[in-house]
Computed example of a mutant assay.
Amino acid sequence: MRWLVAILVVTFFATPALAEWYEGGTLHNASLAQWKAGSYSDKLATAGDWSVTILGEAKVRKIGFSGVKVIANEIVNCVDEVAKENSISSQRASEMAAACFIMLGL
């Protein structure tokens, strides 16, 4: 019995909690070059933050976080596409994301 308790305690405390998709974004002030080098999860979390800000509280409540995730994913794809153009790699990813919101009609 003691070993079972030990296993449960180790499993509970040693297993890191899975982060939600919208946690941990660090690319808010990134250049397109930095964006390009970022992980998908970092991009998605950052795009989620931008999406919530641009959409506003009422829209976010209406579509929920699953809807925000769909929009954030569209923004990631759009900014990734823009980031392929090396001649603008010093531009801010946030500026391109704002343009993507407009172009995509979000």
Rank of each mutant, 00 (worst) to 15 (best):
E81T: 14
L104I: 11
M1L: 10
A72Y: 07
L106D: 04
A98E: 10
S94L: 07
N86K: 15
I102N: 06
A17L: 15
G25V: 13
G25N: 05
A14G: 15
A99S: 13
N77S: 11
F101A: 00
P16L: 10
G25W: 04
G105T: 12
L106S: 03
T15S: 04
S41I: 14
Y22E: 09
Y22V: 07
V68E: 04
A97L: 06
L8S: 10
A93V: 05
P16K: 09
T11S: 09
Q91K: 12
L32C: 05
N29D: 15
A58C: 02
L44A: 02
A17V: 15
A6Q: 06
A97I: 10
Y22G: 02
S39R: 09
A30R: 00
N29I: 12
N29G: 08
I54Q: 06
L44D: 06
G24W: 09
V60H: 02
T53G: 12
F65Q: 11
I75G: 00
A17Y: 06
F13Q: 04
A17N: 08
D42S: 11
R92A: 11
I71E: 02
V5A: 13
Q91A: 14
S31E: 02
E20H: 10
A99I: 13
E23T: 13
T15K: 00
M103T: 13
A14N: 03
S94W: 10
A6W: 04
I75V: 14
T53L: 10
S39T: 15
A98N: 08
D49Y: 14
A19G: 05
V79G: 02
D49E: 14
I88D: 01
K69R: 15
N77Y: 03
C78G: 01
E85L: 08
V9H: 01
M96V: 10
V68D: 04
E57Q: 15
A37F: 01
Q91Y: 15
M103C: 04
G56I: 13
Y40L: 12
M103F: 08
A33H: 06
V9Y: 01
G56T: 12
R92L: 14
M103W: 05
L32K: 02
L104T: 10
A47L: 05
D49S: 14
W21Q: 00
F65I: 10
N29L: 13
F13R: 01
I75K: 00
N86W: 10
R61M: 09
S39D: 13
A45I: 12
G25H: 07
T26K: 09
C78T: 02
T53W: 07
W21T: 04
T15Q: 00
G24H: 06
V70N: 05
L55T: 12
V68Q: 03
N77G: 07
D42Q: 07
I7N: 04
E74A: 11
M103I: 07
W3E: 14
A37G: 05
W50P: 02
K36Y: 03
E85F: 08
M96N: 14
G67H: 07
G48Y: 13
Y40E: 12
